[in-house]
Nucleic acid binder design. Sequence first.
DNA 1: TATGCTTTTGAAAATCATTTTCATTTAGTC
DNA 2: GACTAAATGAAAATGATTTTCAAAAGCATA
Lengths: 143, 143
Amino acid sequence: MILEKKKAFNSFAAAKGLRSTRQRDIILDIFLSTHQHISVEELYLKVKSSNPGIGQATVYRTLKLFAESGLAREILLHDGQTRYEHVVAGEHHDHLVCTGCNAIIEFEDETIENLQKDIALRHGFFIRSHKLEIYGLCSTCRI
Amino acid sequence: MILEKKKAFNSFAAAKGLRSTRQRDIILDIFLSTHQHISVEELYLKVKSSNPGIGQATVYRTLKLFAESGLAREILLHDGQTRYEHVVAGEHHDHLVCTGCNAIIEFEDETIENLQKDIALRHGFFIRSHKLEIYGLCSTCRI
DNA sequence: TATGCTTTTGAAAATCATTTTCATTTAGTC
DNA sequence: GACTAAATGAAAATGATTTTCAAAAGCATA
């Protein structure tokens, strides 16, 4: 799965005429080894710990490329940091965001996805992507 | 309706022990006279045109208060500016965001709302609010 | 109405995430 | 190996937002 994603990114890069660089390979490896919703700063720190030479700007630039390639998706929560999550082909999930402990619970619901398509159809709208975030308190924090 | 909202905000302010000021009254009036999704900068410019003395920081501070009072809601799109929309009690709408022309189309769908409640229930999650944004191209831009 | 205490304000400075600049390095090509 | 354009790192720049702080204003009380 990780190998497929690397291939997919390499195809994207090739198609765009981008050069293959050590930095991008490293950042891709580390990004793929993380879990959901990592912020740029967090990823940068991870990268720096094993590769002190890699600069922050490169991490920013590279994550934007990942998003452009479809490998990652930018998400904006309310803490002022852009986060990136993994995109799994043919799969979409949404988020329950706990405002108590900042936990993020993922869920999938096909019915909601289909209803969105209906709505878009009704408005003559062509869907590229979507984002559903439900804010509140998780089972632990509501007590 | 506008009057009710003003009263609601005044109650909130009173309960919080905030003082009533000319600036907040003016900003509230102007905010209530606008349509959906105004950015802080946009509102500040409107405010400044009729009241040049009012500073930007006051607009930022006041909009945060509006959000806290439940009168307004912060929304984050992908242009790096925080926007505020009007909250209408007992009503919720979501957004179709056109990435071509930045138009925002609102819609309401009770079924989606109910499905969200089901999902929350399944996860033992208590919902405070939610946000659904569908990105793509509107009927004009898709052509 | 004047007094005193505290909040609010405006202007400017500070902050913080992100982007840009630019000199240097590097990948891909001849 | 040499050339050319793209990529990088470090630092500076940017832009939205927040904070600071001295002055002004609100509110309670005398």
